[in-house]
């Protein structure tokens, strides 16, 4: 069985104050992740205060952009296109909600190595997603 990948229409997210930095970097092809200057732990989604030690000294770092699929679900009956939602564990150690793209949906597996790619949302905003490495 094969379910070929097709680009789908992605609605641009409404950002909160402080989120622009993440998406501006994405539009330049860079994936950012937040790191705490005090406890040194990475976290995602990005926050102004570290969710591990509550320090207010969190910093944007450029992620390597590589990771491993923690889990996924090929979503077959939610809209016109089949798409795969997933959690990818970045090499920095944090997991992020994302989509797996540019590959046969039926060949996706937990544990698979993936690398970041950027897909345009409506209006041109770049959205980080992952394709097989």
């Amino acid at each position: 069985m094969a379910t070929p990948y097709q680009d789908r229409i992605i609605k641009a997210p409404a950002l909160n104050i402080g989120d622009e930095i993440y998406y501006d970097a994405a539009s330049q092809g860079r994936l950012l992740v937040k790191q705490c200057a005090d406890c040194k732990k990475y976290h995602h989604y990005p926050r102004a205060l570290c969710p591990f030690c509550f320090s207010d000294k969190t910093e944007w770092k450029e992620a390597k952009g590589t990771g491993t699929i923690y889990t996924y679900s090929v979503t077959r009956r939610a809209g016109p296109d089949v798409y795969t939602i997933a959690y990818v564990t970045l090499d920095e150690g944090v997991s992020m909600l994302t989509n797996i793209v540019d590959c046969d949906h039926d060949a996706i597996r937990i544990g698979q190595k993936v690398k970041v790619v950027f897909k345009p949302a409506e209006g041109g905003m770049a959205i980080p997603m992952f394709a097989p490495a």
Binding site: I10, P13, L15, D19, Y22, Y23, Y45, Y83, L97, N99
Partner: peptide, 9 residues
Amino acid sequence: APFESPYGP
């Protein structure tokens, strides 16, 4: 939401 809604949850 800005880090999740684009992925079709």
